[in-house]
Every structure is written in C-alpha cells, then in structure tokens.
Design a binder for these strands. Sequence first.
DNA 1: GCAATTTCTTTACGCGAGTAAAAATTTTAT
DNA 2: ATAAAATTTTTACTCGCGTAAAGAAATTGC
Lengths: 335, 335
Amino acid sequence: MEEFAAVSGISRPTVSKYFHDPESVRASTRARIEEALAKYDYRPNIYAINQNRQLTKNIGIVVPYLADPFFAEIVRRIERRCIDAGYSPTLFSSHGEQALENQILDGLRSLKPAGVLLAALGRASDRQEIEKFCRDVPTILFDSNLDGIGEAFVGSDNFSFVSQSVDYLTRSGEPPIFVEMATPANPNARKRRTAYVTKMEGLGLEPHIVQLPGEGWAFEEIGYQGTMKLLKDGNLPTNTILCSNDRLAIGVLSACYESGLKVGQDPSCDLRVAGHDDHPFARYTCPSLTTVAHDYDSVSNRSVELLFELIDNGGRFEQRSEVLFASRLILRGSA
Amino acid sequence: MEEFAAVSGISRPTVSKYFHDPESVRASTRARIEEALAKYDYRPNIYAINQNRQLTKNIGIVVPYLADPFFAEIVRRIERRCIDAGYSPTLFSSHGEQALENQILDGLRSLKPAGVLLAALGRASDRQEIEKFCRDVPTILFDSNLDGIGEAFVGSDNFSFVSQSVDYLTRSGEPPIFVEMATPANPNARKRRTAYVTKMEGLGLEPHIVQLPGEGWAFEEIGYQGTMKLLKDGNLPTNTILCSNDRLAIGVLSACYESGLKVGQDPSCDLRVAGHDDHPFARYTCPSLTTVAHDYDSVSNRSVELLFELIDNGGRFEQRSEVLFASRLILRGSA
DNA sequence: GCAATTTCTTTACGCGAGTAAAAATTTTAT
DNA sequence: ATAAAATTTTTACTCGCGTAAAGAAATTGC
C-alpha cells in the first residue's frame, strides 16, 4: 500500500481510508486513486486488514446438508443478499454430521465473522457446542430452531404447513395418514407430527402416523423402501398419504409407480399423496406433487435483515425473537 | 501468543513452530503446550498467520450452480477430501452468472489459496478473466473444460456417455433422437451432441437432434415445456428419446406423464426416455430413469489429488493434462 | 478575500504472528 | 562422562495495514 500510495500521489492513510469507504475521501482524491488503481491493479491484503479487527465483514452461512435442493435454494438467496450488502458470505455444509458441524463452528470462530446464519442439524447437533458458539459469535438461527439458542430464529410455521395440507386433504377426500421418518433429524419434522395430531383431533378425526425406518439424509430412499414395504404388507387404512416433507413424498411416489398404483385426485386413482416444503423438483414428479410451500423469499430475506440488525446492534438483542412465516398450499396433480 | 507462551512455559517461537506442525517439537514440549491449550483455549489468529504468506492452506472450490444436485454431490466429496488433507476448502457458486463468477475469482485472488478447483460456467464464462486468474492462482478445472486453461482438467468422457446410451438404446429398440437445450451453457452438452452424431453415423443411422428453447439453469422446466410442445406438434420420428442430461429428462418424463404417455421399455409403452449424469434423483423418477453415470468418486478424487500434486509442484505443471473418466450405463425403468 | 471548515499529509506506533541468528539447554550416541 | 546433535530460548526484525495526533493544504461560506 505504501508503494501504491506513492505512485498514486496520495498518502497511505488516505488510501487506507479510501479502501475502507471510497465515499469518505474527496471526489478528486478518489478519482486519482481509482486512476492509479486501473493502472497498477493493487489490492489490499485482506489478512492484514482483518488482523486487528475484532469483527470482519465476513458472514458465515451454515446448513445441514447442501446437497438437499431446499437448502441450496435458500442459500442461493441469502448469499446474494449478503453480497449486495457488501459482506463476504462463506458457505458451509455440515453434511449431516455432528463432528463436521462442530468443526465448522470452530473454524468460524477464527474467521471472526460479523455474524452467522445457522441452520443447525437439529437432533444430531451438539447443543452445548452451539450454545457456546452463539455466546461468542452473533448468530441467527434459521429453518431449524433450537430453543433459546441464538439471538433469533427465522423459519416457517410448521403448524401452518400441516394445517393447510390436512384441511385440504380432508375437505377433498379421505383424511390423510401421516408418513414420516422414525427418527427425524430435523426439529421441523417433530413439529409437523405434533401439528398433524393436533389438527386431526381438532377436526374430530383419528390421527394415524406411519414411521418409516431409516436414518440420515437419503429421504427419497427411505420413502421408497418404506412405502414398498407398506404396500406389500397392505395395511393402509386410507387412500391418502401426507408426507412430512417432499423428498419423502418423492420416494413414496416412486414406490407407488413401481407398484402400479395410480396417484392423483381423480376417482380412478388408487392413492393421493401430498408433501411439505415445495421442494424445487416437486413440480416435476409424476404426478406433480401437491405440497405446501415455504415462503422462501420471506425466510431468506428476514433472516438476512435480522442478521444485519443484529450486527448494527453490536451482536446482541435484548430479547430472543422467533419469526415464523406462513406457508402456501400448492395444488398439483398428486392430491 | 506471547501470553499463551508464557502460561504454557514455552517460548513464543517454539509455540509458533508447534502450531505450524505439532510434530516438529519434542514430545515433552508438545505435551506441555497441549496441556496449556486445554486450559486456556487459545487459538492463533489466522489473519496474522496468513498475512505474510504468499500461499495459504485455503482451497477454493467454484461451481456454476450449487442448487444443481449434481454439483452439490460432487462438491460434498471434494470438500471432505480437502478437509482430511488439512486444507480449508471454501465453497463458491456462480449461480449461473458471469459477473458473479468473475467476482468470485477476484475475491479468491485475495484469499491467496494454495489452489483452486474450478468448474466454470462454460459458454457464459469470461474466458479471458479465467485465463488471467489461472495465471495467478494454481487452478485445476473440473467437469467443465475450457481449452488450454488451467493446469489440468478432470472430467467425464462425454463420448463414453453417449456411446453407451446410444449403443444400448439402438440394440434394444428404435434408435434415439437426441434432446438438448438450444444454447447449452455447459461445454459437455456440446460434446455430447457431437458424440451423438458421430456415434449414430458410425452405426449407419441418421442422427436426429431436437433443440428445446430456453436458457439458464431451469433444465427441468425447459425439458417439460419443450416436450409438451413437441408432443402437441406430434412430430416425433421415433419412440426413443435420449436427453443430453438427466435434469432435462426429468422434465421430459413429467411432460410425458401429464400427456398420458407411458414411458418404459415394455412393448405396451409409448416412449423410451434416457438421460446422462445419473443425477442423485434419477433413481426416483417415474419410471426410474435409465441413464449413464459419472464416475463421481474418480472425478472428485482425481481432481483433488491432481490439485495436491499441483500444489506440491509449486503451482505449475510442465504440461497441461486432461483426464477423462469413463461412465457407466445404469439400466432402470425408463428405457 | 479571509476565516472557518474539511480534507490530507506526516509521523509514529500497534497488531499477531513468522522467522532468522546466536546463545543456551537438553538429549542422544559413544 | 563427554562430545555431538537436536531442540529451545533470546532477541530482534518484518509484514501490510489500521489509526491516532499534529500540522499543512485545500475547499467552502460569507
């Protein structure tokens, strides 16, 4: 920077000021610096810049499983907004593993980020570690809530999801059974189950839950295998299946197709299947999947906005808040 | 570090040495440092560490579109291997935009990474910028090749893909037409088209290519809309469709289903559809998709290995190499 | 045109490490 | 036990930048 300042004919402190905020120097000065910049393509050493900062312009984004298109999609929006606001987002995926999640948080601490947007693994998370991390780094949780952890939570209202799907399904045909994984990784799954029970009872109907065996993030496979077995055993008490999430539903649809069952709302159909999340590919299943959509835009926007607020507020909120966005029923061919 | 060295009873230079490589200090010294480490949880400032390095332990991973499960999957493997080798991988997605790709490369330059694994946008890439970047930063291209750019390329052999699918399809039924996007973003698409023509001609058959209109990364939608129109116009010269990639095929399958066409190899079926890539969800389409699989493991492993070699070699290879892995036909229900 | 204000320049120090060189200490080999 | 070898300590300098203070220069207001 010394050298660059010399060739641009400006003092180093002023150049330093320019890089911190180009608007903070006089227009004529700025012009001269930018002129020199065009000629010598100097760039400040970000490591030197950040060395003495307790907070950088970095933002950490952590998701449990990036190969899940749901997270890929939401991350895409969040990233964009961070960049537009002048931050440098860094993306991490826990790949479904607690050890990796902890490792990521540990590395994140060293990055001294201005803030972190964390979608935790959920059940598989090391609650203590996350709690400790949140004490050190301003963190907003999204999608996956951990009670009392983080400065705020932004996500979708699971009751809204299930309420709408159950309402629609009962109104238009037989009441649904609820299909989920036996040991769901994500806290939303548990909330959806509870919501299903509550909702059904509210309608004076008997809830019926089917738990498919399997762990991990291979939801489609679990849905597929589970449904094959279910169909073979032939103990479906209804013709309507509501899946905890769309990826499970994709597996269910696949099993139905292979078993020669026709899925759809038509009277000639054997089954109706619906899901939750409005997974990016749900539109292209056969038949296309009736589901309930996250308000992707609101969740990602509000998460980022809250994080910026948090950063402006020095990294702490007086009170932890939870924002839940309502979902939207998407009627398609499968139910 | 000064303070930490004091409380651990070891001199600062030795502590510094320890963090650079714990094996480089005597066992007794290491023990004392680690003992102190457990008590005071000090961690070196990565910014200070990297400030005077011309090369860090960072590795940049850049993909064109992370919301595409193909990339999500391959990145998952690459990331893991980098971490295991003691590097810090950082993930970037160009989200299909040239401007963002350039911006990412620019940011990457500042990160002074030991190496970069780059899957470029392809047609949408700013060739010059990438070339310039590769001169500054040791870079291995993967998946998407740009002639002469980067120190090496690792990818799948597109001819192997198409050769296998065409062979199988012609052997088992009518020869396929080839469905692709009109202006494919990815260089592999062009190679696959050429391979199709070559292969068909080699078999003494007339190639027939259908180009679906549409741009960007919404492949399923393009496949869906294009097929709907194709079916309406009713000018399919054969009952066998070979798609340039699986995501397109997912859209095709969806359109077929909606149009009441039965897809499969059974004589009672109207159409056969196959794809390429073995997309993570191809197993769960209805019917499940016959496709040709990347050798995910080899591609990701070899990319990483080559990058490590490149790093050890000081960032340059004497000669640019191109490694292509053969693919594997996956027979499923759709063809 | 002159004072008040704003912006720059000069000078100097600090940050948290890496690292080189020489001296001191510990370990190993004989 | 002693010499040789390996490791650690001491000391001191470097890197690239942030930033504070004081004074100089340029701009603005009237």
